[in-house]
Amino acid sequence: MVESYLWLFAMSYLPEYSNGRMFAGKLATIIVLLDDTYDAYGTVEELQLFTEAFQRWDIRLTESLPQSMKVIFEAILELCEEIEELTTESGNSNFVVPHFKQAICNLVKGYLVEAKWCDEGYIPTYDEYKINGMLTSCCPIFATTFVGLADFATKDVLDWILSNPDILRAASVIARVLDDMASHRFEQERVHVASAVECCMKQYSISEGEAYNLIHKDVEDCWKVINEECLKSNDIPKIALDCIANYARMAELSYEDHKDKFTNGELLIDYVSSLLVYPFCLDQTVI
């Protein structure tokens, strides 16, 4: 939970966005279980029905599924009820809740695609992988949740996020491919969908090292897109742009040097301690 919360803390530390941080932090913890369900525990047949339950938002479709899937589905339903309660007073629930549901549906559809690729032993092209990876990066669902609970939330801003704008695509690619480079060797030790690295190696017939170089260049290009979008998107609230850019920054921190600091939480201890545990003194000297 601490590692999950840190991602949302990175998206914005401002006190007025505490609701978004706390809610999305809980959501992130549930998504870890959701990801593992599609990644390692469910059969394709079970996952197809699980995904359909989300598409219809109908818990009755989970009756024949394993108990673990029912628990996760119920937890997400409870989170949806919570987000409705949080947005009813402001009058935003009529558009925030549908966008939240759609973001969840898009996420699980992305997970299902990867589960099918794994089951079939299919290695997509790097370009094909990135398109689906934009969903499984989780950037869209967290941006939707964070913005939906903010005081500037409007249907237009959430529609903008749902349209998958350039800045969101770029941040999503950064998060997806950096995660893959940090974790793919461990994950490929078992049956697992091909990562960005394997897809890149196959598409361009190159070595692992060459794939790393190409992906890092891709990340640099994505940062150029983010910078450009932050400068020119004057009709979008700056905090909405900032939270997406900050998601990409947190990905850089979490997966720098090809180390998965999210999975191996001990690598984040110093950051957590300095930010959340140990107080620091502000210089009171008046000049």
Rank of each mutant, 00 (worst) to 15 (best):
V97R: 03
C80S: 13
M69V: 05
E84V: 13
Q48S: 15
F50T: 00
K70H: 09
L86D: 00
N106A: 07
T125R: 08
R56D: 09
C80T: 15
C118M: 14
Y126T: 03
E74P: 06
P98E: 08
F100G: 04
K116G: 12
G110S: 03
Q55W: 10
P124G: 07
W117K: 06
E114C: 11
F95S: 06
E120N: 15
I72W: 00
C105D: 06
R60P: 03
S93W: 08
H99F: 08
L112P: 00
Y126H: 12
W117Y: 10
S68Y: 11
T62R: 02
R56A: 11
E84D: 13
W117M: 09
E120D: 14
Y111Q: 11
Q102H: 12
T51I: 08
C80H: 05
I76F: 01
L61Y: 13
Q102N: 14
A75I: 02
I72M: 05
G121P: 07
V97I: 12
T87V: 05
L49P: 01
I123V: 14
T88I: 14
E84M: 13
I83W: 01
C80D: 09
I59E: 14
F73N: 01
I59S: 13
T51G: 08
S68F: 14
V96D: 04
L47Q: 00
L47I: 03
E84H: 11
T62D: 01
T87G: 05
L79F: 05
I76T: 06
P66L: 07
Q102F: 04
I76G: 00
N106W: 08
I104D: 00
Q102E: 13
Q67N: 14
E46C: 06
T87Y: 10
F95G: 08
P98Q: 07
F54Y: 11
C118L: 10
E46G: 02
P124C: 09
I104T: 13
T88L: 15
A53V: 04
E120A: 15
L77S: 13
C118W: 01
R56M: 14
E114R: 05
L77F: 08
